[in-house]
Design a binder for these strands. Structure first.
Lengths: 222, 222
DNA sequence: TCACGTATTGACTGGTCATTCAATCAAATA
DNA sequence: TATTTGATTGAATGACCAGTCAATACGTGA
């Protein structure tokens, strides 16, 4: 169903490529194709239930090829997750380095970025599903994401809040020790999407408004 | 390792039991033991990676017995998850039916109950892990939990907020359409526990304070 | 104490799937 | 064009495991 039975249609892709490095580039392209196919399969079925043969056929290659590029299913899985850290902090820093903006405005920028990248991005949902589902089997992955993403994001939020307190735009309170609490509703939205998106979709625009309103009001001094 | 090689030690448990219904009660006890063992195994490894033989040995019975009580691995899995809905709404209603209490106090009661039952309860964490991990394979389970728990809890929160607005103790805002947003930080805490509890444990007492403070301040009219 | 019916055991079967590898193919080079 | 190097295929291997079932143990009631 996924492919015709012929094997002849295999390697016809894009012959308009610079001839010099054809072989090497093919190698990397193949890796990417396999990693991408593997991500979809792992995310849909989980590590154990995913068949390497399905990964191969989604990538349009024969059964044995994933094992040529990756020593084992486990290596493939780890490679999939390592590749998905998007270290694009530039957009974030751009939104934050506007010294003339109020804390509320900066916060809005930060939270809306979180929605773009995380809450409204189904790929991120599937990634979170994988991390949660396979956490016990691959604890080093959670560790890795913590170091690469979570820790930095929390530190950033913390700095934003501290700055707000200095300027008298944020009241002090116990949440200053847990800046991630501010992102709670966004995480809830992701979990909601994972569990209930099919039957009870969230209106993410309006949920975002609710989230922002609640949080900004919660932080503002009275 | 888990059991000695002898089969003779099998059914010696608790001979001080009323004799009349011994057989029938044993039947239910066995079912419970198997379900409990299955929950732990499924939660630790996921559906696909769990071996029925491990369930059996955790329950202290022979390999074939789970199949005697449950038609298949899939039936066992569903039975495990259906049994875990704790419909103990009484504690909740008790905390809410204090007409003399302020909205903030009621909210505190509600959120603290959520922490007791959900955030501070590792069993609930594992349940959420299972629901998220196996959602694609067993979509009816998410549906089931939505109907049994989520929907009701949201309705309850919604009523609480509406009542607060009437009494002038809660400002209006877009979050009135998404009362679940108020629980966001709690969900985040559960996800945190699932991912990072080992290496970066949360101080749940203080996180609770931060959560409550943020939310109450966010809801209070200025 | 015996016979009956149910609970329990664990060896066995059949199917699934990760991994291996000999054979083939295709690009690059001589 | 012929040769070399490395990518790709897919059949074969072996491990693993859900589900079966014949044999046995045990509580119960006569």
């Amino acid at each position: 169903m996924k492919r015709s039975a012929s094997g002849s249609s295999a390697v016809i892709r894009d012959p308009t490529r610079p001839a010099g490095s054809r072989r090497r580039r093919d190698r990397e392209t193949r890796q990417s194709e396999i990693l991408e196919a593997a991500f979809e399969e792992f995310a849909a079925r989980g590590y154990a239930a995913t068949r390497l043969e399905d990964v191969a056929s989604r990538a349009g290659v024969a059964k044995g090829l994933p094992n040529f590029y990756f020593a084992s299913k486990e290596e493939l899985f780890k490679a999939v997750l390592h590749r998905h850290v998007v270290p694009d902090w530039s957009a974030l820093e751009m939104r934050l380095e506007q010294p003339e903006a109020s804390t509320a405005e900066l916060l809005r920028g930060l939270i809306s970025l979180a929605y773009e990248r995380l809450v409204e991005n189904p790929r991120a949902h599937r990634l979170l599903r994988l991390l949660i589902a396979e956490g016990p089997k691959f604890p080093e992955l959670a560790e890795f994401y913590h170091a690469e993403l979570i820790e930095r994001a929390i530190a950033l939020l913390g700095r934003l809040l501290a700055h707000g307190v200095e300027r008298g735009e944020v009241r002090s309170g116990p949440y200053l020790d847990y800046p991630q609490a501010i992102m709670g509703p966004a995480i809830m939205a992701v979990v909601w999407q994972l569990l209930f998106a099919e039957r009870y979709p969230l209106d993410l625009e309006r949920f975002f408004d609710a989230h922002l309103d609640l949080v900004v009001s919660g932080l503002t001094p009275r």
